[in-house]
Amino acid sequence: RRSPVPHSLRPPLISSLLVAEQPKNKMSTQQKLRIAFVPEHFASPLLQLAAKDESIELVPCPSGTGQIMSAIKANEVDVAIALTESLIAGIAKKTADFKLVGTYVTSPLNWAVIVGKDSKHQSLGDLRGEKIGISRIGSGSQVMASYMALREGWTDKDGNVEPIQFEVLDTFKNLRDGVNDGRAAAFMWEHFTTKPYLNEVRFIGNVPTPWHSWVVVATPSTTAPSSPLRSILESFLSNLTTSIRSFDAADARASSSKEFIKGHFGYPEEDVKAWLEQVSYPKGEVCEVDRAMVEKTLTTLEAAGVLKAPAEGWNLEDFVDTSVAKLQ
């Protein structure tokens, strides 16, 4: 579901950071923790950490959480930072084998609802029964479209969310093209990432997530006590906490963090300031997972028709690896 950084803004800026994380001689024979992430502004504390931590290797997934789950399933990554709703749905549906080990962003994600530049649609109500573009099956763009339908009351007489017709368009560019050439009536994407493309598309509404927007997951082969990656994972979560605190400090938000985002993602200062006013990172440790947040996500995704609870109900330990994370 998630957007790539515009190509013209990406090289060599992000690539220079990824080069910086490559192994030095002393690390060349040591296994590294492979971390899938979406190369967007939310990733700033992770990018800053990767520039100086030789034990991790970042794996960019510009198409978003659907692409990340495919990478996990293919054993291309050990850890991922991605969207809460899609990862929790992925665990419930057994899309790939992983569990939550931490929290990365605690504020909601502001999903914009986007139509073509000359579209007839002017409000969210106009989209009822229309085809919705998504990046991949199981992506945040699909899950959040179902939540939008629930929130907007697009339900039958029994209160069930009406079936939505989805059009899989893969990339952010294809989604933008798709709402202009008629393949889809609308799609959903993060607000600030889409804003540079308002010469191509239009916003007609916003749907914030009712849960923490980004979490950290790891595979069983990474969290196993006998895994050589287990200690690297624990160090990574601790180091990420430190990086977040540095990025999130009030003086950094007003200076170095703001300049980092402007320099590496090319966003105008007014957008960076607006986003920094909205975003919240964990105040405690990254390895803490909020029990109520997981429960609310599951309950809401059930109501939206994304998930169906087993007869015995959900077991939170199926979703959170409590040998690594602190479920609170």
Rank of each mutant, 00 (worst) to 15 (best):
I81L: 13
I81G: 10
A82D: 10
A82G: 05
A82W: 00
T84R: 00
T84Q: 01
S86Q: 06
I88Y: 01
A89F: 04
G90A: 12
I91W: 03
I91G: 04
I91T: 01
I91H: 01
K99Y: 02
L100E: 05
V101C: 08
G102Q: 15
G102I: 14
Y104Q: 00
Y104P: 02
V105C: 04
V105R: 01
V105N: 09
T106I: 14
P108V: 14
L109G: 00
W111R: 00
W111V: 01
V113N: 00
I114K: 03
I114F: 05
V115D: 01
K117Y: 04
K117M: 10
D118C: 03
D118E: 13
D118N: 07
S119M: 10
K120I: 15
H121N: 13
H121F: 15
H121L: 09
H121W: 14
Q122Y: 05
L124T: 05
D126T: 09
R128K: 15
G129V: 07
G129E: 06
E130P: 02
K131P: 08
I132T: 13
G133P: 03
I134D: 04
I134N: 05
I134C: 14
S135R: 15
R136Q: 04
R136C: 05
I137K: 10
I137L: 11
G138W: 08
G140T: 02
S141C: 06
S141I: 01
Q142N: 04
V143Q: 04
A145F: 05
A149T: 04
L150I: 01
L150W: 11
L150V: 11
R151G: 11
R151A: 15
E152T: 13
G153Q: 11
W154L: 14
T155N: 12
D156T: 05
D156C: 06
K157T: 11
D158K: 04
G159T: 09
E162N: 13
I164V: 14
I164H: 12
I164G: 13
Q165R: 14
F166V: 03
F166I: 10
V168I: 09
V168W: 06
L169D: 15
L169C: 04
D170K: 07
T171N: 09
T171Y: 09
K173P: 02
L175R: 08
D177V: 11
D177P: 04
N180W: 04
N180T: 11
G182H: 00
G182W: 02
R183E: 04
A184D: 12
A185R: 06
F187V: 01
W189S: 00
W189L: 05
H191P: 07
F192L: 02
T193G: 04
T193Q: 07
T194S: 00
T194Y: 06
P196Y: 05
Y197A: 11
Y197C: 02
L198D: 15
L198N: 15
N199V: 12
E200T: 07
E200G: 12
V201I: 14
F203S: 07
I204S: 14
I204H: 10
G205F: 09
P208S: 09
P208L: 11
T209L: 01
W214L: 15
V216H: 03
V216F: 02
V216R: 13
T219R: 06
P220L: 11
S221F: 08
S221M: 07
A224K: 09
